[in-house]
């Protein structure tokens, strides 16, 4: 059944090759998340009130190896969607397949959670053990992995997030950014294909945010793990390869960051921000200064300004 569903997806969308070869053998070409007419309602227990429609007709395809940022204001449905991706919630109607496994089938719940791990916002709520390496080992232990292999997985995971030297530390001695990296290591030790991060940097300071973002990018670039990042920080979304914007439970924009962020006014209408350089370029264009429309970074902005200054001076001479 699982295999059939996978084959079915390959017909529906041009596949991209996954570079990931270690672990699960030949994975071939794959779509990792696929949803069809996904709806979800939070049921009110007070019968006089209507249920809240949190997801409305969501159709997404996410390929293995993608780095997708999900944006949307509070209450737009992005966390609800994230909770569907690893079967913490099941659709009210419609279907979501994770590597071909229907999330509604309880038999799929554990395989799905093993391959799509989740990191949450609060670094203090996710670590369960009193020693860092025991915390990282918690996942694989529960999977029944042999102990020699657990050792190997924990060491590798800690090395990947650059926290090996803290293996024997107690989580409460770590900074917020370090705790989040341990949470990520705990998921890596389960050998996932995908990590879903729900505002992992919201409670961190700038340097902690940077640590976590560096780790996420490394996982995607080097380990080819699919990353789904929910964030309110536009500077982080810019680093993704694809941005999905949600509003009122529906996907309203989907594209590469440059195409999404240049629609400054639309983003503002959706209650979202754009990177500062993009916002400034937009204001200058509105005042008649022809700055490049789709600048994303400070460097691009500066280049565009310098080009303009040069033209300005050339035209004067």
């Amino acid at each position: 059944m699982r295999k059939l569903a996978c084959e079915h997806f390959q017909i529906r969308r041009t596949p991209t090759p996954t570079k990931r070869s270690e672990g699960g053998g030949e994975r071939g070409w794959s779509i990792i998340f696929h949803s069809q007419n996904l709806h979800f309602e939070y049921v009110r227990y007070n019968e006089s009130e209507e249920n809240t429609l949190a997801l409305s007709d969501v159709n997404i395809h996410i390929n293995q190896g993608e780095f997708v940022a999900i944006l949307g204001h509070n209450g737009s449905g992005k966390s609800t969607l994230a909770r569907h991706l690893n079967a913490l919630l099941a659709p009210t109607s419609g279907t979501l397949w994770v590597q071909g496994m229907d999330t509604e089938d309880p038999n799929n719940t554990w395989p799905i959670r093993q391959m799509a791990g989740m990191v949450f916002q609060n670094p203090d709520n996710q670590l369960v053990a009193t020693i860092v390496e025991e915390d990282v080992a918690f996942g694989p232990e529960n999977l029944g992995v042999p102990s020699a292999e657990i050792r190997q997985r924990v060491d590798n995971a800690l090395q990947t997030v650059r926290m090996s030297e803290y293996a024997q530390s107690s989580p409460h001695q770590l900074s917020g950014g370090q705790k989040q990296r341990i949470a990520i290591a705990g998921i890596l030790a389960m050998g996932p294909d995908c990590i879903v991060l729900d505002e992992p940097t919201a409670m961190l300071d700038p340097s902690g945010r940077q640590e976590v973002m560096d780790t996420i990018l490394q996982l995607n670039n080097e380990k080819h793990i699919t990353v789904i990042l929910i964030t309110h920080f536009m500077e982080e979304a810019v680093k993704a390869k694809r941005v999905i914007v949600m509003d009122k439970g529906a996907v309203v924009m989907d594209g590469i960051p440059r195409e999404i962020f240049k629609q400054v006014d639309k983003m503002k209408d959706l209650g979202l921000d754009v990177p500062s350089a993009t916002g400034l370029a937009n204001v200058l264009r509105k005042r008649g200064i022809p700055i490049q429309e789709d600048v994303l970074t400070d460097e691009e902005f500066i280049q565009s300004i310098l080009n303009h200054v040069k033209e300005y001076h050339d035209s004067k001479n």
């Binding site: 500062s276 916002g279 400034l280 204001v283 200058l284 005042r287 008649g288 200064i289 300004i305 303009h308 200054v309 300005y312």
Partner: peptide, 14 residues
């Protein structure tokens, strides 16, 4: 802020 930055840049190159 974006507004004050735009004002300053406009003064130089607008």
């Amino acid at each position: 802020t974006i507004e004050t930055a735009a004002d300053a840049l406009e003064g130089i190159i607008g």
